[in-house]
Design a protein around this nucleic acid. Sequence first.
RNA 1: GGGCGAUUAGCUCAGAGGUAGAGCACUACCUUGACACGGUAGGAGUCACUGGUUCGAUUCCAGUAUCGCCCACCA
Length: 939
Amino acid sequence: MPEETLPKTYDPVGTEARWQQAWERSGAFHPDPEAPGEPYSVVIPPPNVTGSLHMGHAFNTALIDTIVRFQRLQGKNVLCLPGTDHASIAVQTILEKQIKAEGGSREDLGRDAFLERAWAWKAESGGTIVGQLRRLGYSVDWQRERFTLDPGLNRAVVEAFVRLHEQGLIYRGEYLVNWCPASGSAVSDLEVEMKEVDGHLWHLRYPLADGAAGDGSDHLVVATTRPETLLGDTGVAVNPHDGRYAHLVGRMIALPLTGRRIPIVADAHVDPAFGTGCVKVTPAHDPNDFAIGQRHGLAQITVMAKDGTMNEQAGRFAGLDRFEARQAVVAAMEAEGLLVKTEPHRHSVPFSDRGKVPVEPLLSTQWFVKTEPLAARCRQALERGEPRFVPERWSKVYRDWLTDIRDWCISRQLWWGHRIPAWFVVSETGGEITNATPYVVATNAAEARAKAEARYGEAITGRPLQLEQDPDVLDTWFSSGLWPFSTLGWPGEGGAAGGSEAEPADLARWYPTSVLVTGFDIIFFWVARMTMMAGAFLQEAETPTGGRDSWIPFRDVYIHGLVRDENNRKMSKSAGNGIDPLLLIERYGADALRFALVREVAGAGQDIRLDYDRQSDTSATVEAARNFATKLWNATRFALMNLGGETPGSLGEPDRAHLQLADRWIQSRLARLNRDTAERFGSYALGEAAKGLYEFAWNEVCDWYLELIKRRLQDPAQQRTARAVLAKVLNDLLVMLHPLMPHLTEELWHGLTGEAAGTFLALQPWPELDQAALNESLEASFAELIEAIRVVRNLRAVAGLKPSQPAPVQFVTNRAALTQLLQEATADITALTRAECVEVLDSTAADAARTGQRALAGVCGELQVLLPIEGLVDLDALRGRLEKDLAKAAKEIKGLAGRLANPSFTGKAPPEVVAECRANLAEAESQAELARKRLADLG
RNA sequence: GGGCGAUUAGCUCAGAGGUAGAGCACUACCUUGACACGGUAGGAGUCACUGGUUCGAUUCCAGUAUCGCCCACCA
């Protein structure tokens, strides 16, 4: 045994850190755009700088890194670009909460101090996240790390805003938006989550204004879940075909509590079957009412302030919180005898994702992106199959969302984010920003001033020019939407004013990216926004000859599932059921965690469930992966102890003339694995790839091949061939496993090959496929041999032989090929079954030899296995085994014979299936016959 | 109200038109110089239900049920 050997178990923590540092220091993952090799690029979904990473990030990372490491082994020029997202509203919410806890407010702090604090937060949280990504062994280019709020990306955001505005795709206007009173900002439709809430349906009496109608009725009853909006009602609507109210359409209502006269209108939106069939219309506080109001020219009266309290339009209710006002209005109506009834009512209420409070539809002046033209381009691209979704079904989700899309409100009344590049000419409106204030959009203040000067300058208007930048910032997803090209250098040095000529090298080389890997939960938020943005800015680069073949920012979109907890619940911060990836990394190693996560992945993008014990912070799933790492470690350790200091390189190709059955078998299996694994990695079947490698390594290499060559490795006359095959198998296995378990394989590969520390497995080529080694019939024969050995072992176990006790083994078969196989493998069988001796006989020879002899006997296929020993064996157990064999054969015979007896089967089924069926029947019959005979012998 | 997924061994999940597999857990034996984070052998499933297509379905189709997710303006 060599002096130098590995410890018995693998300690991942130190090893992983060592390789992470080595990779990064060497610039192994810092690609040169000019380098040869087909470009392959991935921009990672930038985690929000809202704290630390959760298991979902670890999962996403494991998938992406597996893919890019595989592509690197394929010789591609791979860029994997990391970064983080400023997460405007999420971060601001966290900070405001902190500040509030300290007894202050952001207004007290002021914008500059607040932003300073936000940047400090970013530094800390971003640092934590980047540290965690490193600990996973992410093979990204840290030199190209980006942050959505860094100066380069800010240039891209400003450029994008300016260009969209020039194209008429950004506009400003007063519309009903989703207002989040908690964050004091507008939010987009996507940031609103509908929640089922137990509320009430209040039936309120609305008197007619000008006396009773012809039929004597003097009022209508409306049903509402939001009585407080009564104060802003400007109409009542009924269905035009509702006979009950037809005669009242056009009459006026005297709105209670306000004395306002409002009309009764007929609108098809009203469902006569719901409630009373009468709907109060509050255009300034409800999207449907807004639409009804538009159709009938109703006034819009806003009765609520931005903080969720009632405003001066609410009269005596002014100043009340909206929920207090609800109760107060109901009470007032009741006092006036106008509350008809109150019913419990379960309904959906829009909540703000971040603020966790109900959003308020509110009329507000905001910036919007006109989405339909952008969406149309994306839909057209999708018709051409771009991008390709994996699994395909998500393309439908994506397309449906791009159809009937609504405009995107992009302005946020926040501070942390990209400031909107619009300057108001406040000198035109008395120093105030109002809805009437003209504005200019420009890339910077100087340009804005120049533009404004030309239109509103003193020379023209006679007033001194006064500009003020819009205080609002952009929706985070506006900058995230540019991520696949802003990170690659778009729009280049030129910017809007300069008119960029040359594309940045990274953009030219790596755009469009190869694949986007992300969860389905952000298809709308992110994927669709990226394609829409790309459609606005990258189309001009599309050229029929040369250039890029598509403006769509990614060729493939691989959508994966969510990681769920041990109870199959979605992990979330609020539910407190997250599992800290670092805890598992510390315990089992990053490779084990990665392998466990990837191995769980099914082809269809299903959610995965991670097994976890919260008492002990252990996970059986990850532990199994760690055990696999240890198994690989020990297999390599065994190899190092037996290669006599040689390496795969020094041993070279094994001498074909000396290859034994086991060698040819493992080489065939290896070639098959190579082919299948490359195919699986290449088609995002990562879980299958992982399982295939696991089974090969454990069940074929460790369980059989290593056991089979142990004797030869000790024999100087035979060891060279066995060493060469072993070294090659292990080497290739480590390369193929590298995308999944990068650190362990890097470590073991260096041990095996003796390569210098500065040479990396990560940058090696994928093993060449040895097509000639593939041998299906040999694999089939070998499977028979394995089966024969299993039967011997089983017999020994059933008969209660001690593992250490040698026993003679006889095989009986009349098939020449099988006879030859068993004879060739006699030494192997001897070693693996503790055989005293191994004989292969035909049935006549066996009958002759067996006279009067009691033997342990079993059958497998057409092979009889005999252990002719006398003495203390458990005959009952043996009888049981044979009876089981017999029952199994009988059942098979019944099924097969039944099928063959059916003329439509023999007539219509493919001939080869019928033939196979006949062969199986024959085999089962002979097996049954053998079993019966042996049973009879036992007496 | 639409759409999508899931339903297979105790648990977590693969799978393929020809009568079921893995990991973990379980049982028995084994500290045999790679590995007890291990080895050998073993037990365990009418593949949710009902129809249909087919010579044959757990695998394809339709419907049902249960669970989960997404979208949607019924006040």
